[in-house]
Amino acid sequence: MTDTQQFEGFMRNYQNMVFSTAMRLLANPADAEDVAQEVFLRAYQRFDELRDSPTAGGWLKTVAANLSLNHLSRYRSRWSFFSELLGRGREEAGCEMEFPADESATETGEQADRRALVEEALQKLPATQRVPLVLYHFEELTYEEIAAKLGVSLGKAKTDIFRARETLRRRLRLRLTDEPRLRPAHQT
């Protein structure tokens, strides 16, 4: 088997993971595909090291997250004004989202519907809330690491993540145990 064929196999093993990382951070399939392509081009340059490395997945995930964040910061300042408008417009129009494909054939329709709903709610969050939330729950970074990565204060990182969770809770109608007793006064 040639190097290229081996790399193709390697890429097929990790492409969903890399694309998911980029997709959750960018919420845009075209941008996520561009980032995934760049990740694999970089991986190809280091394929000799990555081929048998047990940490290849982690490396790919980190590069995908970093490139996605670079992409966001490069375009955010230029286009935030318009993209915020577009984002609101999309939400107002109730636009159709693409949902992830079913993982297993045994999954019930109800579970798939639920996952699609959660994915849609996540994608509809504004970037300022979605990005730190994804970094916390999917990339498993700490609040401090997220604040440092995004160049914001620790307080802002925490607040944005809290707001993101609150929005998801409302949109998904999540119920917490002992909710009335626990919820802060301003939320009731």
């Binding site: 969903n16 694309f19 595909e33 995934a36 992830p100 494909a101 996952r115 969770r165 999540l174």
Partner: peptide
Amino acid sequence: CVGRELKALGEWEAP
């Protein structure tokens, strides 16, 4: 609670 919901999500299928 939110973490549980997000963890249950699968991976996106790459194009």
